[in-house]
Design a protein around this nucleic acid. Sequence first.
DNA 1: TATAGTCATGCAATCGATTGCGATAATAAA
DNA 2: TTTATTATCGCAATCGATTGCATGACTATA
Lengths: 339, 339
Amino acid sequence: MKQAVTLKDLARELNISISTVSRALKDNPEISAVTRARVQKLAKELNYQPNALALSLRHSKTNTIGVILPELVHFFFSTVISGIEDIAYSNGYNIIICQSNESINREILDSKALFNHRVDGILACVSKNTTQYDHFIAIQDKGIPIVFFDRDVPIDASKILSNDFEGGYNATKHLIQSGKKKLIHLSGPEGLMLSEQRKRGFIQAHQDLAIPFSREKILRCGDEDARENFKIINDALDRGMKFDGIFAVNDIAAVGALQALKAAHISVPQEVAIIGYSDWQFSSFISPSLTTIKQNGNDMGRKAAELLLEEVHSKDTFVEPKSITLSTEIILRETTLNK
Amino acid sequence: MKQAVTLKDLARELNISISTVSRALKDNPEISAVTRARVQKLAKELNYQPNALALSLRHSKTNTIGVILPELVHFFFSTVISGIEDIAYSNGYNIIICQSNESINREILDSKALFNHRVDGILACVSKNTTQYDHFIAIQDKGIPIVFFDRDVPIDASKILSNDFEGGYNATKHLIQSGKKKLIHLSGPEGLMLSEQRKRGFIQAHQDLAIPFSREKILRCGDEDARENFKIINDALDRGMKFDGIFAVNDIAAVGALQALKAAHISVPQEVAIIGYSDWQFSSFISPSLTTIKQNGNDMGRKAAELLLEEVHSKDTFVEPKSITLSTEIILRETTLNK
DNA sequence: TATAGTCATGCAATCGATTGCGATAATAAA
DNA sequence: TTTATTATCGCAATCGATTGCATGACTATA
């Protein structure tokens, strides 16, 4: 059980000083070619690997960025991670991922842990329950840049957001243009910015395309569980509610609705069309396959990481926060009629 | 843009030495109560947070464990992560996650990065393409414990595996017991231990239940893409192959098969029953919903982390590697007949 | 008034690596 | 032969925190 090899070990072995070893390893011309060769040879033999901790301490730079996000299980977030990794790795950065599990307490702990690890910057998607932001602001104040993604926050920082308004608008417009006129919307949590935006898009599209709109068209849907939404649509049908199109705030809700319609022997998309949001992995597998709005998670991750690294590299000079809004794309599948 | 507060800052402010500050913060009785109070008050005011890097360097202990796994997008792996987090966090450990993307080169880089960060231990699920293991052995030799999970490896180390043989056996048995007799198996990669085990279970169940078996019953399926498997089943049907039950090495393959059967107007489960493996998230959403073998990822993560921490804590005394095999569970859904 | 004993605190080494500056030796120039 | 120059290399401080040991002041005892 050997310990890791250090510069000191190499120095002792070769009977020279630590500083010489250090310089020799980085081909410093102040060290004679002979010595350099000897050092490098031994380093290779003993498989010397520099201690990243010591380096980070010395340089006050960890070459690590922290990522805080709600949950990894979501397909969208894992594509965001991939995008972040692409940029981080190719720039020599490592990443530490923390899941908040949609808990603000966990989020606070995570942000402290990342700070204590002296990450060079943080990428964060706040939890649904985050209503105060002191923990982030405290970190910003210490000079560690933070870039937020996917969910908007009232903090003066760079942000990469998805255009949820546009997504909701286009989804609704697609339903209307394919001949549906009595739409309902399964909406997300009130406080959550993205839910509100998608809902706004739904409403605006009604107005722009001169389709009557009323509040009853919006049903608050269950979070993250298809069964809940099954029940919601089922109840709506029982109440005799009439509709020929559904725009769901996410694909899970859409699937719940789809199952309720199937159970009620209502044909999709002929009688009722459905469009979801986020293009979850299963959306192309199910039958009928689900039309949905796709957010490019990989792009979001890459953009966010790029922006963060920019801020990291211009450590001392102030950088004006940027807000970037990414467009969405509509993925046409079987749950809506394609004209 | 303030820098982070250090012991030195506190010491300067209070006009005492750094060592006194350090001791005062941990309530060392050698320091007078008055001084302790003053130090602690100021530390709170300035929001002092100890530099984790310096601590790690000093103690040669990072309280961090590294996790290497193929891909986060898989529902199974994200549940494993959750299990690992549960144990790690409650024991004061942080985790660093690396995705190998099923690439051995990336895996080698990741393992080096984790070593350089001086993680206290590593949890690893090797990529499909990993056929040599020097990078792991080199790390073990430096005294860093590694626990492997999910995929078996020819290394002398602790392992948490899923009983793939049992899973394959039970899946096959279930099909047979529900009246199906002409089964086929969509199998995974040859080299991959878990594929081999599931296939073995398939074969063994035939023998035990006295159902004739032949090599043609095994079709090598495409990896990770439902469409490929659609084609494979489609071709089999075109060739006039007869079967009434399919055991797929994973749920993706099962879905591909399901779609091919649907397209051919073959009823599921009446004419052909299907059972998958892993209980992916979509498996309960699709229609008909997919019967599958569930591996408890959370459990696997917890067990693996517990085992690793045990080894980490008994750093110097040798620990005999343990192998734990977790049982699987069959999730009955609509693609098989339940008697 | 010495001497021993407490109490509170500071010094300095340490973890592993980097780096400005000084030191030594060999060589070249005067 | 003496001085200037150059090539090579080591010393020591530094990053932030910990900790064994020494130091100083003060009190108590003889």
